[in-house]
């Protein structure tokens, strides 16, 4: 569930309010968005992806709120990691973060081939 909107990083663009599918955040005039309905959060990380300020932290626990240490999160390197790995915005031209999603099929094929050769080896070893 979403836990933090970090004021000193937030530019007030309100993109997160707009993109959140379950309407968790609320626009506050002249201030950073408010986490108004945390219980509705579907832990999809979309707000983080669209936050250019890297100001949002979503904890992975989808069942209940997590107690988080704001200062530790600020220095953890986790903020903005998702947007970076997606190669969005300023990361778009960085070759380390190109979109390799198309390789998914070949990964499944590797797993299948591994399973087949493991089964063959097992039979050869006689168990």
């Amino acid at each position: 569930m979403i836990e933090l909107v970090i004021a000193e990083r937030c530019t007030g663009c309100n993109a997160c309010v707009e993109v959140c599918p379950t309407n968790v955040l609320e626009l506050v005039a002249g201030d950073v968005p408010r986490i108004a309905r945390q219980a509705d959060c579907q832990t999809c990380f979309m707000c983080e992806l669209y936050c250019r300020g890297d100001a949002i932290y979503v904890a992975p626990d989808c069942e209940s709120p997590t107690v988080v240490d704001r200062d530790a999160i600020l220095t953890s390197g986790l903020l903005g990691e998702f947007r970076r790995d997606h190669g969005w915005d300023e990361w778009a031209t960085d070759p380390r973060y190109t979109n390799e999603h198309w390789r998914m099929e070949s990964v499944f094929l590797r797993a299948r081939d591994m399973a087949i050769s493991e089964a063959v080896a097992k039979r050869r070893d006689g168990n």
């Binding site: 990380f45 990691e81 998702f82 380390r96 973060y97 990964v107 590797r110």
Partner: peptide, 24 residues
Amino acid sequence: RTPEDIRGRVPTISPNFMLPFRRW
């Protein structure tokens, strides 16, 4: 059992997959 080369590629194939693990 995940081969090394695939481990390295998981974040650029499915960037969200590792999020819960890294955070936990």
